[in-house]
Design a protein around this nucleic acid. Structure first.
Lengths: 210, 210
DNA sequence: ACCCACCCGTGACAAATGTCAGCGCGACGA
DNA sequence: TCGTCGCGCTGACATTTGTCACGGGTGGGT
């Protein structure tokens, strides 16, 4: 447990989550803490920087899964513009790759949505104090599953192939030759250890490479 | 707005959601309402019936996505054992098929996670009062996208094909001939209007047929 | 008794997919 | 400068996938 601050001013918080219900609920949860103060709520990554500029929070709580700019990109944008704002990432999925990318983007912490509610406020306080907060199990896992082995193009193609589109459609969408698409897919399949595209997609998604 | 009850006893609530953080946050949010009382929280569908038996809530708030028994199955189980307990389904995805199946299972309401937080308490009150609560947009959509056109076996095969397994693997897993697997897949592809398995999977998932 | 839908299987065919070798180009570091 | 790597392209090949026609079996309705 982090020692409760005695008489400092409250920690100013910004919440970003596309699901209004979750956002509101988190707000209610954190507002119960006397030393925390939710000063802004936004529903997409694009709004984060503007909201930070306007409300000057100490800590930004960002969801990874958001429309428009995702949590990772938003992290980078915030850190670039306001280096003293700490970022704490919250997410549904404990994808190893996400942790790594979030940290590289300048996040101070990473919390999965199935950690106990009581720990969230504590994580916020730790982050505000300059500490790093990462679920230990997730941290070790993210060391094992390293950087994405996929090249930029392979990632593009694989991402475009998620919905189950045919090679011809992918080629049109990406302005590539069909042969090239198949080569990239083949490379991605090889690197992921999969037996076909669909499996490659699930493996890559599971590792946070997409 | 539903008229606030003046001097009745509070509505007893049960919360079921596998993500502890969300569960705790919802609990905090709903506990702010004077006429609501969260009397139990569980993290999986299997625990729901037992918790209902023990705590006798008026309303059960169930997430659809849960390990073990999902929210729909849990709804049916609760309604069978305790007919006067109302069920309100909460979910991330507004899959049309989910709404239909939830209602058929005996749910009284269906709320998507991106509705404003302020409306949740109201939805609970309405459900408790015996009314049905469904997002209007979702309701009309769920009328259009009707019952799943897939047969039991087709659903099995398509579900097994989600990860991207090859026909040979599916055949082994389901104890079927490879030809039969391909026939079922072909039927599913035709019925979903897809061009291949992967697309059929995404379409079926999008409609809540899996 | 009949029809019908579903299930499981076979066999054969066309199309899509995955693999491989090889080519040129540009960028980047040694 | 050279070697390496990513990128894009081609062409050829084996395998997988999707489709279709067909048959047999079961069980539920009318």
């Amino acid at each position: 447990m982090t020692p409760e601050p005695e008489e400092t001013r409250p920690i100013r918080l910004l919440l970003a989550d596309d699901q209004a219900l979750v956002r509101g609920a988190l707000s209610a949860l954190l507002s119960l803490e006397r030393d925390l103060d939710v000063v802004a709520e936004v529903s997409s990554g694009d709004q984060v920087v503007a909201a930070v500029r306007e409300h000057r929070p100490d800590v930004a709580l960002l969801d990874v899964e958001m429309p428009g700019m995702d949590g990772i990109e938003a992290t980078a944008a915030v850190r670039a513009a306001f280096p003293d704002v700490r970022v704490l990432i919250v997410t549904t999925f404990g994808r190893p790759g996400f942790v790594r990318r979030a940290m590289q983007a300048g996040a101070s912490g990473f919390v999965v949505k199935d950690t106990p509610a009581a720990q969230l406020a504590d994580a916020v306080r730790r982050v505000h104090a300059g500490l790093r907060v990462v679920d230990p199990a997730l941290a070790t896992e993210s060391l094992f599953a390293g950087e994405s082995p996929l090249t930029a193009r392979e990632t593009d193609v694989l991402r475009a192939a998620r919905g189950g589109a045919a090679v011809s459609a992918l080629a049109r969408a990406l302005f590539l030759s069909e042969g090239t698409v198949r080569n990239h897919l083949s490379a991605a399949i090889g690197k992921t250890g999969a037996g076909n595209r669909a499996e490659a997609v699930t493996i890559a998604e599971g590792n946070g490479w997409l």
